[in-house]
Amino acid sequence: MGMPNRKYADGEVVMGRWPGSVLYYEVQVTSYDDASHLYTVKYKDGTELALKESDIRLQS
């Protein structure tokens, strides 16, 4: 078993793309699913969504 190939840690605050949009919002990573390679993130309004790594970026 190798290390999970994840870029962002639980609790890390990053920018997540809103689905169907080009806009990124501040989100907190809450979990990562090794099987689906999706991150569960929480937006400031409390919305929780699963995002692909390509829809997440570090805060500038």
Rank of each mutant, 00 (worst) to 15 (best):
H37R: 13
S54C: 10
S60F: 13
Y8F: 12
T47N: 05
Q59W: 14
P4V: 12
G16Q: 02
D33E: 04
N5P: 15
I56Y: 00
A9Y: 10
V14A: 05
Y25K: 10
E53V: 05
E26M: 12
L49W: 15
A35W: 10
Q28E: 12
E12P: 01
W18P: 10
Y24C: 04
M15V: 05
D45N: 10
S31T: 07
G2Q: 09
D55P: 00
S54M: 09
K7D: 02
A9G: 09
K7Y: 05
D45A: 03
L49D: 03
D55E: 10
G16A: 15
V27G: 10
Y25R: 11
S60M: 12
Q59Y: 14
E12I: 07
S31K: 08
S36D: 06
S21C: 08
Y8P: 02
V14I: 04
S21T: 14
Y24Q: 02
L38N: 06
M15I: 06
A9P: 07
N5D: 13
A50D: 09
K7H: 06
H37L: 12
V27E: 00
L49V: 10
S60V: 12
L23A: 10
D34H: 10
P19S: 04
L23M: 14
Y24H: 04
Y8D: 01
M1I: 14
K42R: 14
L23F: 14
I56P: 02
D34G: 09
R17Y: 02
D55V: 02
D45Y: 03
G2L: 08
P19F: 06
M15R: 06
H37M: 15
A35F: 11
T47C: 10
H37V: 03
D55T: 02
V13K: 09
V22I: 12
Y24R: 02
T47S: 08
G2R: 02
P19I: 03
K7E: 04
Q59M: 15
P19M: 06
S54L: 07
E26I: 13
N5T: 13
M1L: 12
A9S: 10
R17P: 05
G11P: 01
A9I: 07
G46N: 06
Q28L: 14
L38C: 08
Y32R: 01
S54T: 12
L23I: 13
K44R: 11
G11R: 03
Y24W: 15
E48Y: 14
E53R: 02
T40C: 10
H37Y: 10
E48S: 11
S60N: 12
K42F: 07
T47A: 06
E12T: 10
Y24G: 01
Y25F: 13
T30L: 15
V13I: 15
K44V: 09
K52Y: 12
E48N: 07
V14S: 01
R6E: 02
R57Y: 12
N5L: 12
S54E: 14
